[in-house]
């Protein structure tokens, strides 16, 4: 199948957010959004390019994801109009599953980014208090990728709310995935939750 998404597709983006979503276990210092992204990228690159085993690298990255990403904000956006019809229990369950699913997607791609370099190229102010930080992702023997992290102020620091790679928004694409799935499965959030449970369980099954 010649999927004509040119050089990268959306999962490349999922993978790419690895570079933007991790940090060390220490809190991020106050500063500009560009500083935040530089710090994130720098810490993550040092983990990926270290000699740590895949398991060890994941254990180092995982707590950082929780600190750097606004999971709940992204999850709510991804559910779209179905967020309003979900019950409180469904929302809670969905948020937990989304958290795991996104973390798994990022972790799965960690190894393929050895030798990566990140160069911040600019920032811009967006709507609703968001800021876009553009950067170039360079991997050995791969074309450079133009990326943009969308961040929002969170106390003294920032949190990631979206990643745009080659013009494709990670959260918008994920939202289309979920909304289409729900629409084609009776319009019920519980069916999405069931599918996400299977997805997470399938991922955690060592036999897979």
């Amino acid at each position: 199948m010649t999927i004509r998404l040119h050089r990268r597709n959306i999962l490349g983006l999922v993978a790419a957010c690895v570079f933007s979503l991790a940090a060390s276990s220490t809190a991020f210092a106050a500063g500009t959004s560009a500083d935040f992204v530089r710090t994130l990228a720098g810490r993550l690159v040092s983990i990926i390019n270290s000699n740590a085993s895949p398991g060890q690298a994941k254990s180092e990255v995982n707590p950082l994801l929780q600190q750097a990403i606004d999971f709940d904000n992204i999850a709510k956006f991804c559910l779209g109009r179905y967020w309003n019809v979900a019950t409180p229990d469904q929302r809670t369950e969905y948020l937990g599953l989304f958290h795991q699913a996104l973390t798994n997607a990022i972790m799965d791609k960690l190894g393929s980014y050895r030798g990566v370099r990140v160069k911040v190229t600019g920032t811009e102010t967006l709507q609703q208090g968001a800021e876009g930080v553009s950067f170039i992702l360079s991997r050995p023997q791969q074309p450079d990728a133009q990326m943009q992290l969308i961040v929002r102020k969170d106390g003294d620091s920032y949190k990631v709310v979206d990643l745009i790679g080659e013009g494709v928004s990670l959260r918008l694409t994920q939202s289309k995935d979920y909304n289409s799935f729900i629409a084609r499965n009776g319009g019920k959030v519980e069916n999405l939750i069931r599918a996400m449970k299977n997805q997470v369980a399938h991922h955690d099954d060592p036999a897979n």
Binding site: M1, I3, R4, L5, H6, R8, N9, I10, L11, G12, L13, V14, A15, A101, N104, A105, D108, K109, S112, E166, G167, V168, S169, L172, T173, Q174, K176, D177, Y178, N179, S180, F181, R184, L192, A195, M196, Q199
Partner: peptide
Amino acid sequence: NDLDQLQRDALDPYATIRSAYQQQRKAL
């Protein structure tokens, strides 16, 4: 690897590809 992961992670790969394609073409 990317398409394998898409098939594994997306609940509706068709809708995911459609959205990514449309966004990317508009951006280009």
